[in-house]
């Protein structure tokens, strides 16, 4: 059997204490929400923390609350199953509930947290493997070696951002409340991500994702679609969050398109977004936006599925979503 390496599990009483403990133990420590990413990584010897700081039972990070702005504040330790079933989320941000509902299996959703999904390590099928397997194929840049097995000539790591909720949060323009030694800071969630498989997040090691703040939708509708081989368990091979707000006259007022599982960060397709702004959703426009998505998508061969199919599906999902919006607004 694959076993964990031994570690001490500590349960701080507050976020402040968690950050304090992280400082005290230094790089021998790791935060853990539900552990559905961290623990498999320990079994694969991708991480070997001596101390694990549990965030899942922190009350202050467990709730979903209405903010004054009218938006929602989602605690970092909110379970994926809570997102899936919360009436507030389901009614106001249905794509977020949809995205949570297509993560892995019911069991994993009951323990996995939103904070863990936001901080999910980037994935690669040369990397998320046992130590024996990685030794056999040759270790890679992300751990224990210098070269990338997917793109051996490359000087960077191309591991894939694979979270399902993140593109939806981004399409909604979410902000994130990060708690560190200096207290809480607020920044756009988009700024948390970097296009680099080695250091995919602009988060200090001791910082905690305490909460996500969603602005009120204000007419913005988001649709999330995910390609996977099976209807349960599977990470996205591509996932598209298409967000759109239309004017009364059917012109596109706001558009946000984010793709997951095709790059090291949740990828924004600005070219397609810009194409849509200020125009009515005609068939030609939808196709042109789809073309942009297709052309901007450059997945690598380090997930399941094939590159051509994943690229094609990025386009199909965005086009389908746009067609749905157009149908829902016959004026357009």
């Amino acid at each position: 059997m694959l076993r964990l390496t031994p570690f001490t599990y500590v349960t701080p009483a507050s976020v402040a204490e968690a950050v304090q403990l992280r400082k005290q133990y230094g790089d021998e420590a790791a935060y853990m929400g539900g552990g559905t990413d961290l623990l498999p990584n320990i079994k694969h010897r991708l991480a070997e923390p001596k101390f694990v700081i549990g965030l899942r039972s922190l009350r202050e990070m467990q709730s979903i609350v209405r903010e004054e702005s009218g938006g929602l504040r989602l605690g970092g330790s909110v379970r994926l199953s809570q997102l899936e079933h919360s009436p507030l989320v389901r009614n106001e941000y249905p794509a977020l509930a949809d995205a949570a509902a297509v993560i892995s299996s019911p069991q994993v959703r009951r323990v996995g947290t939103l904070g863990g999904n936001i901080c999910l390590d980037v994935r690669c099928n040369y990397y998320n493997q046992s130590e024996h397997w990685r030794r056999a194929v040759g270790f890679c840049m992300k751990k224990d070696s210098e070269i990338c097995r997917v793109a051996p000539g490359s000087d960077r790591c191309w591991a894939v951002s694979s979270a399902d909720t993140v593109p939806v949060l981004l399409a909604h323009g979410a902000q994130v409340a990060v708690f560190g030694p200096a207290g809480e800071r607020l920044l756009p969630l988009e700024e948390l991500y970097r296009d680099d498989g080695l250091v995919p997040m602009a988060l200090q090691p001791d910082e905690v994702v305490a909460a996500v703040r969603l602005p009120p939708p204000n007419g913005l509708r988001v649709v999330y679609s995910k390609l996977r081989i099976r209807m349960s368990f599977d990470f996205p091979l591509v996932g598209a969050a298409t967000g759109l707000a239309l004017d009364v006259d059917g012109m596109v007022r706001q558009s946000r398109i984010f793709l997951t599982a095709v790059a090291s960060l949740p990828m924004r397709v600005r070219a397609a977004e810009e194409l849509l702004i200020g125009r009515p959703l005609t068939d030609e426009l939808i196709r042109a936006a789809g073309d942009q998505v297709f052309r901007s998508t450059h997945p690598m061969d380090n997930t399941e599925g094939s590159i051509p199919h994943r690229k094609r599906m990025a386009r199909v999902y965005v086009e389908r979503a746009l067609r749905d919006f157009a149908r829902a607004n016959p004026d357009a």
Partner: peptide
Amino acid sequence: VMEEQVFRKGLHKKPSLLEYKIPTILE
């Protein structure tokens, strides 16, 4: 429709039940 025991660079490409696809009850 989905199962395949395939190899890459001399070794099993997907030796786990996450990557080696066997159907779930949903499909």
